[in-house]
Amino acid sequence: MTAASPSELMTIVSSRLLCDGTVCFVGIGIPSKAATLARITHAPNLILIYESGTIGARPETFPLSIGDGELATTADTVVSTMEVFSYWLQGGRVAVGFLGAAQVDRFANLNSTVIGDYAAPKVRLPGAGGAPEIAALAAETFVIIKHDKSRLVEKVDFVTSAGFLDGGGARQQKGICNSGPSVIITDLCCFRPDSETKELIVTQLHPGVTREDVRNATGWEVTFGDDLFETQPPTETELATLRELELRTELVQSGSGE
């Protein structure tokens, strides 16, 4: 089997963080892939909630959108969009919010709104979607992002979803009660917030990645944790399952439409 690509590695590392039985509010893209992989490998009772109102979805392929039909047909129940955000997310039923973003900064604030100025943006991104409330109301948040200097920045151009704001106790002082982003997974490493300053600290490096690689790809002066360790490489089972899922998805999606 060929070695894992950066994107496959990131998906596999993320899937390992989702424990069996956890209730996870899943964003589309890699979060959805990682959650599906986790459910099919080590966490068969992982409960997936999508913002389309599909609660307890069990997809066997990767959905292209969060509202794909397979999510509805495999769910425990399908509720209205208002209900999923009010009763289920705001009601406190979600343990992990699993998000992507266009930019993440040193204090784990997320940007999915604009690059540049809001009124005259250089790049207009899709926008908030469900992210601000997922980030504020799930008990904790996992964030997944491809690692480069334009994405991991000192300060995001726009705070779509609050991380630790300016660091320290700023998040709590604003009245946000949950613990916030607990891990940022990239294709080079994982960051976790320092318990006091809330600055993102590198706690693990993926196989073959050096401190220098991370420094060169990050927009702030990176600190490495005292207990820095190397990520376990993907197992044959993880990689084979992920690739089989990708293949099945391709077959189903190329056959869709009429």
């Binding site: 009010s86 409330e133 779509t160 604003k174 009245g175």
Partner: peptide, 12 residues
């Protein structure tokens, strides 16, 4: 709703 805390959206 319990929302937008700390988000720049409220400023714009």
């Amino acid at each position: 709703l319990r929302g937008f805390v700390g988000s720049d959206l409220v400023d714009h």
